[in-house]
Design a protein around this nucleic acid. Structure first.
Lengths: 227, 227
DNA sequence: CTCTGAATCTCGTGT
DNA sequence: ACACGAGGTTCAGAG
């Protein structure tokens, strides 16, 4: 990884056009060639960047009186990032090697897995038909049948907001056209449900349910203990 | 901005839990206190981070035999980021000052402006009634009248996806309650429309249209040349 | 390969 | 403060 601290101006032209006036910033060039320009504050996201694959060419500015250097970064999509370095304050390179990568736990996929394994935690007598049950407009998280064998479509979210209710409503609209499934009931299951989402869901006849991730893990381990 | 290159392990516990095995990485501490951990490749996004405001406390690990150092970053939300530095390879600090910020051009707002100025680029004989026409549930991008003076509600997107169709559907539902407007037709205009979004739109009787940003700019400049 | 949906989304704007 | 929508979204996973 090469780290350059420099007073610079930047111009990006690609999916949009963007410009950075002259200031001191960090230029980060990673081993795979991707380039990122960071300011000293604000977000973790860089001000500008160019992902790999790309080509970086370095040249002097023939029009300039001082010794400024121009970096031109081009990618196969025709996007360009032009960095004019007016003054270089630091330029260091460090070898780092490949990163073993991030291990995550506790995202929506895990919640969905736990619920698929324990549908009765949602509703007594509930049985799983399929995870990611396909419809013409995308897959429903869980399709189940309740104790009366009626279909229940379940949308799982970490945080339940209005767009999740919209999503489930669309699925229900399409699922209810299928005579083998009709009538299909909707359930909105999340670790947290925003008040507005709850209002909209209830207005549409969709049941809401808040579940606890750690409790569910407990349920699962309890079941494992039985064997 | 402080830049530390170190062999380290990282544990994040907050909205999810995540762990990074030992490897050499860049630790970036910005002037506002935010911390980011970068690998030497992949995305511009850091592997782990903690936004400002937060507190960084540095301490030795009393249990360790070597001289490892532990950084503990805490934010008011109770999230923690624990970085164990096994070996520090570089540690530098640079003053950068405030960044003047990014100037952008070519986003959805510009597309909407161009279409508002040239409604006939969407449909022959189309006249603009109002941009950001208000309804009880939010403003419609463009409200127009066609050659037969019937109302047309237009949703403008850079990339047309299902959400946009939902949005327009909601607006149409409310606009069609207004006897002065009824019947209101819907049009979904974007630089690119995803197939599933097109299916849903057509299912709802909404017309789709793909427009080109650069062409529109050309139309505009053509009109300007007339004067 | 495309397409869909999640994200520690982030970031702005408006109320 | 919260809700809503856009993003050079990025990113991973399934068909």
């Amino acid at each position: 990884m090469r780290l350059v601290v420099a007073r610079c101006t930047v111009d990006y032209d690609g999916r949009l056009t963007a410009h950075l006036p002259e200031a001191v910033r960090l230029l980060m060039v990673k081993a795979d060639g991707c380039v990122a320009i960071h300011a000293d504050g604000g977000a973790y996201k860089p001000l500008n960047w160019m992902n790999s694959p790309n080509t970086l060419t370095v040249g002097d500015d023939p029009k300039a009186e001082d010794d400024r250097v121009i970096w031109t970064v081009r990618n196969p999509g025709g996007e360009t990032l032009i960095i004019t370095l007016h003054e270089v304050l630091s330029d260091e390179t460090h070898e780092m090697g490949l990163d073993p990568g991030l291990q995550k736990d506790g995202v929506e996929a895990h919640l969905q897995e736990l619920l698929a394994a324990n549908p009765t935690a949602i509703l007594d007598g509930l049985r799983l038909v399929r995870r990611e049950y396909p419809t013409d407009i995308g897959p429903v998280d869980l399709l189940c049948r309740d104790a009366q064998s009626e279909a229940v479509a379940i949308e799982v979210k970490r945080r339940g907001e209005i767009d999740g209710v919209e999503q489930l409503t669309r699925y229900l609209e399409f699922l209810n056209r299928d005579p083998l499934l009709r009538p299909v009931r909707g359930m909105f299951v999340a670790q947290e449900i925003r008040p507005q989402a709850r209002v909209l869901a209830e207005d549409r006849g969709i049941d809401c349910m808040v579940v606890d991730y750690d409790n569910l893990r407990g349920v699962e381990s309890d079941e494992l203990k039985l064997f």
